[in-house]
């Protein structure tokens, strides 16, 4: 029997809050990345550029939060990119074409998104469709619906304040859209670490049968997780509409892959049960900083794609090596 070393007294509350246990590698990577970029280009290290990065990761960050929950329960959601587009088109239709006030349009967009998640969740739990297939189908359905709303064309003409929500930096720092993202991060962290519902996700991902025998309502939790993931994608769509000041049904293609990449870079295992939001935030930042940094360095677009792929491999391989070392 392996003798079990004492792992020292409890982790500090901050690290436990961010549950970085699986994400120390990515965190070090992020810090290194920032250090290198600060030296390599003088335009990187500035408050303004940092705020730009936050602007740029808003949608990805919010989608990745939902994706983290899904992957934590050993699922996958391929539909988020399409749900972003569906939510945007519903928003545009209700607000611009049908003339409803923005708050109703936003509610409508979120409801449409939530509905897709709920349907996917029901397919997975009640009809035992594998998550990959259920959400693949939903990806196609949501994209088709998004296109049907305007027969493929874009909608512009939102009220001016809507775009301002993504541009004006209140107090010099915070756009409303970035504020929403930070609020989602904090709420998700608190939920994951301190709410019963959040802890239960780890049990389901670790072993759904153990969770079920422990009296956890696995089906209900699964449906809720997919609904939450889709709703967050819908929220991402609304923020993206504000940022672009226009909506179009072709937006968000392959966003699900970015979200999955961010979650995996952040140390959440695709087989479920380990990882968490803290790591995902780092994963999102790595992608954001990397894209920003490579643009600032004027690296050729083709080389950028290669570098981003390499970083994904490195982040995951480093984590695997760390585990093997233990």
């Amino acid at each position: 029997m392996g003798n079990v070393a004492d792992q020292g007294e409890g982790r500090s509350s901050i690290t436990s809050l961010f549950s970085l246990s699986g994400a120390t590698g990515p965190l070090i990577g992020l810090i290194l990345l920032c250090a290198v970029l600060s030296v390599a280009t003088d335009s990187f290290l500035s408050v303004r550029n940092f705020l730009n990065i936050l602007d740029q990761i808003t949608v990805l960050g919010i989608m990745a939060v939902g994706m983290t929950f899904v992957i934590l329960i050993a699922g996958i959601d391929l539909s988020v990119g399409s749900v972003v587009a569906l939510s945007m088109m519903v928003l545009g239709y209700l607000n611009v074409e049908a003339g409803y006030p923005m708050y109703i349009a936003i509610m409508g967009a979120l409801c449409a998104a939530a509905l897709t998640g709920m349907v996917a969740g029901l397919l997975i739990t009640e009809f035992k469709v594998p998550p990959f297939i259920a959400t693949l189908a939903m990806m196609s359905i949501a994209r088709g619906l998004a296109n049907m709303i305007t027969n493929g064309s874009q909608i512009i003409g939102f009220p001016p304040w809507f775009n301002m929500a993504a541009i004006i930096r209140h107090g010099g720092y915070l756009t409303i859209t970035v504020g929403v993202m930070l609020a989602v991060f904090i709420a998700a962290l608190l939920f994951q670490q301190f709410r019963k519902g959040g802890r239960v996700l780890y049990a389901i991902g670790g072993n759904p049968e153990v969770a079920r025998l422990a009296g956890i309502n696995v089906k209900r939790a699964t449906i809720l997780v997919y609904t939450a993931c889709a709703t967050l994608a819908g929220l991402g769509g609304i923020l993206l509409a504000a940022r672009l000041d226009a909506v179009q049904p072709t937006i968000g293609i392959a966003y699900e892959l970015d979200a999955i990449a961010a979650v995996v870079i952040g140390g959440t295992s695709l087989s479920g049960g380990t990882g968490g939001i803290g790591g995902t935030i780092i994963g999102v930042l790595i992608i954001g900083v990397l894209r920003n940094g490579l643009n600032l360095l004027a690296v050729s677009p083709f080389l950028q794609a290669v570098i981003i792929g390499l970083v994904i491999v490195l982040a995951v391989a480093a984590e695997t090596f760390k585990h093997r070392g233990n």
């Binding site: 335009s43 500035s46 550029n49 730009n52 993206l240 672009l244 226009a246 937006i251 643009n295 600032l296």
Partner: peptide, 15 residues
């Protein structure tokens, strides 16, 4: 991707 382009333009201006 439109959203990507907006981000990239921010970075161009930063430079």
């Amino acid at each position: 991707d439109t959203a990507t382009q907006v981000s990239q333009v921010q970075d161009l201006i930063t430079q």
